[in-house]
Structures are given as structure tokens and as C-alpha cells.
Amino acid sequence: MYEAHFGLNQPPFSLSPDTALFVRLDDHEACYQLLTHVLDTGEGFLKVVGDVGTGKTILCRRLLRFLSDDEAARNRFYSVYIPNPMLSPVGLYRAVGRELGLESPRPSDNAALLEHINQQILNLAQQPRGVVIVVDEAQSLPPATLEALRLITNLETEQQKLVQVILFGQPELDELLDQNRFRQLRQRITFAHYLKPLSRTAVRQYLDFRLTQSGYNGPTLISDRSIKRLHQLSGGIPRMINVLTHKALLSAFADQRRQLNPGDFDRAWRDSKPEPTRLHSRLALIAATSALILLALVSAWSLL
């Protein structure tokens, strides 16, 4: 809607995880370098933890793109992507089997499926290629399925692990792993990275890169005062930055302005806040009425 007005060739703040718009922020770049280092050294488990909207999914997609597009990585690793971890152990084994090229594994019990998968992993190791299992939203893994995933990683030779696992999850992932039943798995997680919200400087870098990649070539579109306000409202969370900046661009476009101001982000914030439900509104009205009645009683009492 506003692209032509601002000289853009695409929406710069879409919520879809477009790796072409991946910004090499210090924290995200450090996480990506850790991911590739862990793959290179053959460590068994790695976890990436971040709150909602901090950029886990786009990091996950960038890693998967590296594994599929980089020739050296493609020759060395066979990637398995589990985007929906709400699976039973049998469901997990079937999903992994399909990703490994086992079209329709016949066995239906856990042990037989695991043996079928292990044999395929051993076959791939002859090429030689290791298997990388990437799990997004890993905090949603049922405990039994997480244990099933651990059993897949038991396969190894005297020289190396044949299966590596990278878990992307929200902070609840740590709560899941803290259970005593997963103490063996915790010992295998040799590296972890915790994604942090963006600083104000990083917010500027994030916005400028996405605008430039989307075709913007003009004077400063978002002033320092506006950046400060955006940082305050978004808390430095990339997803909220995308939502608020998209709506702020719409606000400026509606006024036919070519620069965003703090008021645009205030409007975007008000528009993004959830409306109170009727129940909440009634409760608020009851509370206010009760407070007025109590105040009137206190005033009347003081006059006696």
C-alpha cells in the first residue's frame, strides 16, 4: 500500500522469516557463528533460547538454507527439519524417517522404527554424511518425544557423533530440560545461546538494513527521536519492531508525509494493543462503581 510512496520495491517489515532480510546484528551473528562452529566440530546438542519474537525462526531458516545451498555443507550433512514438534515418539520417528528418505517405514513400534532410522543413518555415514536434526519451537516437545529424540543421538562411531541436534525454543525449553528425567540429555548440550532484545543502536541498524534491502534510497526516513520511541515501545523485540514500523509507515502514508515521527509509533502502539474484552470492561466498571460507593460512604461517615 505505502511502498510506492516511500520508494520501496517490497514490504520491508513483513512478519514472514525472509532470510534475504536477515540483519547481521552482533547477537544474531554470534549465534549463527556458534551454530556453524558446532556443526563443524561435531558436537551432539545445541540449544538456542529466546523469548517470543527475538528472531529464532529466521536464524533457523538461515541455518537450513546454509545446509541446503552451501556445497560443502550439503556434501557433509543431511538435514532433517522438524517444524512442528507436537508429535508422539512414533510420529517423530516417522517424520525423521521421511526426511532421511525412508518413504513409508513399515514398523509401527518405537524400537523397530528407531532401528530402521539408525540403519539409514549408518548408510548415510558411508558417503560420508552426518545427520543434523533441527527442531523449531522445541519447548513444545512432549517429554516422551524428547526422550525419543535423545535415543536417536545415541548412534556414534569411535571417531564422531553421527547425529547432531539443534533445538530452537522459548525459555520454557529450559524448564522442560530441567526435569530430572532429562539429566542425561542436559549433559550432552555442550553449547547454548540466549538471544537478547536489540539495543537502540541495533534497532537503527535493523531498520536501515531492511529499508535498504527493500529499495529505499532517500533521506533519513526514521529520526533518532522516533527510533528512541520505537525502542521504548517494542522493548527491542524484532517482531514488535516489524509490527510497529509497518503500522507507523501506514500512519505517515495516510498523512502523505515522507518521514516518520514518534507520534506515528504511538498510533501504531495504540492500534496494536489488544482491546479489552466485554468481561474486562464490566469488571472495570464494577470496580470503579464500588470505589465511588466506598468513597461516598467514607465521606458520609466523616461528616457524622
Rank of each mutant, 00 (worst) to 15 (best):
L35A: 09
L35H: 06
V38C: 10
V38L: 02
L39N: 01
L39R: 00
L39K: 00
E43T: 05
G44Q: 14
G44P: 00
F45H: 08
F45Q: 04
F45N: 02
L46P: 02
K47Q: 15
V48Y: 05
V48N: 08
V52I: 15
G53Y: 12
T54I: 13
T54W: 07
G55E: 09
K56Q: 11
L59M: 11
R62V: 09
R62T: 12
L64R: 13
R65W: 06
F66A: 08
S68R: 15
D69N: 11
A72R: 14
N75C: 07
N75A: 14
R76K: 12
F77V: 00
F77E: 00
S79H: 06
I82S: 03
N84M: 08
P85L: 05
P85M: 07
M86W: 02
P89H: 07
V90C: 07
V90I: 15
V90S: 11
Y93C: 13
R94D: 02
E99A: 14
L100G: 02
G101A: 03
L102P: 02
E103M: 01
S104T: 06
P105M: 02
D109M: 09
N110G: 13
N110T: 15
N110P: 09
A111I: 14
L113C: 08
L114I: 06
I117A: 07
Q119M: 10
I121W: 02
N123A: 14
L124R: 10
A125Q: 03
Q126N: 11
P128Y: 09
P128T: 13
V131C: 03
V132E: 05
V132D: 04
I133L: 03
I133F: 01
I133H: 04
V134R: 02
D136P: 05
D136H: 05
A138F: 03
Q139G: 05
Q139E: 13
Q139P: 00
S140F: 11
S140N: 15
P142K: 05
